[in-house]
């Protein structure tokens, strides 16, 4: 770990004012310190934002929730409103990491998790994300945990978050404070970037900008599920995951908000898939058509080829589960 200056920010303005290319904000620290110890991330300055007043979960005017960036994963998962109205989010949070890590990890930090790609984590390996232009060693290597959707010749990494997948299905927006003190919000789908030829750019956050909150829209009448497939029963990243917010009215699917984890550089959502489902009566054939569209451009890298049938089956099983009562 490289030496750094440590600064404790007393206000968001103080934090963004101290920001810059070689500065990182530290909140939970669970991923940042992990990477700093390995010299994968080498900031000159750490700005500790834990004392900022961003820990509230408040109801918004339109009946949604504004989740402060420093709300821990534990607190968010246990919040009664989240458990009642946004079960997919509570489940996703609880499926991630461990009790200890969820007590540390924050909402803002979770969105900014870096990939778990082993080649990114090992400074002896070329990696376009860590060292732009050096190459991608995951391609042609061991890439069992890598992307099948939206990858590029530069990078096939996946985003490891569960929380962000659920938020993507819920249509969450990210609230960002700029260096001038103004705050803007952005749809989570627009916030993340696919790797293209600049995999080092992972999101729309500008230098020194600070995530201050995530805003969830008003809850909708729906059944929700977060299904995560993994290598051990607990404490493992998703091989694939499906976040689903589904409603069935009069035997027809009225809503099918779907997001997918473990398969791309960002939480994946494909509105064409949802369009196939909405307005139709649930059936295996329909689910297959949705999966066909989802996987139309899916590409395996060798060790991760299995994710293509696995995602299809997991999507179908999730849809079956959430539409089961209506189908009977």
């Amino acid at each position: 770990m490289k030496s750094f200056d440590y600064l404790r920010a007393g206000s968001t303005g103080e934090a963004t004012g101290a920001g810059g290319a070689a500065t990182r904000f530290i909140a939970g620290g669970t991923n940042l310190l992990d990477l700093m110890k390995l010299e994968v991330m080498t900031p000159d300055k750490l700005v500790d934002i834990n004392r900022l007043d961003l820990k509230a979960i408040e109801e918004t005017e339109d009946g949604g929730l504004r989740v402060g960036a420093l709300v821990t994963n534990s607190d968010l998962a246990a919040d009664p409103r989240v458990r009642r109205d946004y079960a997919v989010l509570s489940r996703a949070l609880l499926s991630g990491a461990t009790g200890q890590l969820r007590n540390m990890a924050t909402t803002g930090g979770n969105l900014l998790q870096r990939t778990r790609c082993s080649y990114f984590y090992d400074t002896a390996m070329p990696c376009n994300k860590r060292e732009p232009g050096s190459g991608c060693q995951a391609i042609g290597g061991y890439n069992r945990i890598h992307a099948i959707l939206g990858a590029s010749d530069s990078c096939i990494a996946t985003h490891p978050s569960d929380m962000a997948v659920a938020m993507r299905a819920l249509g969450a927006r990210v609230e960002i404070e700029g260096t001038d003190g103004t705050r803007r919000t952005q749809d989570l789908g627009d916030f993340y970037r696919l790797p293209s030829d600049t995999p080092q750019v992972e999101n729309a956050l500008g230098e020194a900008e600070l995530i201050t909150a995530v805003i969830l829209p008003a809850p909708v009448t729906s059944r929700q599920a977060y299904r995560k497939v993994r290598d051990r029963a607990s404490y493992a990243f998703a091989l694939v995951s499906v976040a689903a917010v589904v409603a069935v009215e009069e035997g027809k699917i009225a809503r099918a908000d779907l997001a997918f984890g473990g398969v791309a550089h960002a939480p994946w959502r494909n509105e064409a898939v949802e369009a196939i489902l909405v307005g139709e009566a649930p059936s295996d054939a329909l689910f297959d058509r949705a999966a066909d569209t989802l996987l139309e451009k899916a590409k395996g890298q060798g060790s991760n080829d299995f994710k293509i049938p696995l995602l299809r089956r997991t999507l179908k099983a999730t849809l079956r589960e959430l539409t089961a009562e209506a189908a009977r």
């Binding site: 530290i26 669970t30 310190l33 500790d48 834990n50 534990s74 200890q100 890590l101 007590n103 540390m104």
Partner: peptide
């Protein structure tokens, strides 16, 4: 490395002492 900070369990290895 699990310890309690303000009563909650955390990984002491991923927290800076100064924090």
């Amino acid at each position: 490395c699990t310890v309690l900070v303000d009563g909650r369990r955390v990984n002491a290895c991923l927290t800076l002492a100064v924090m």
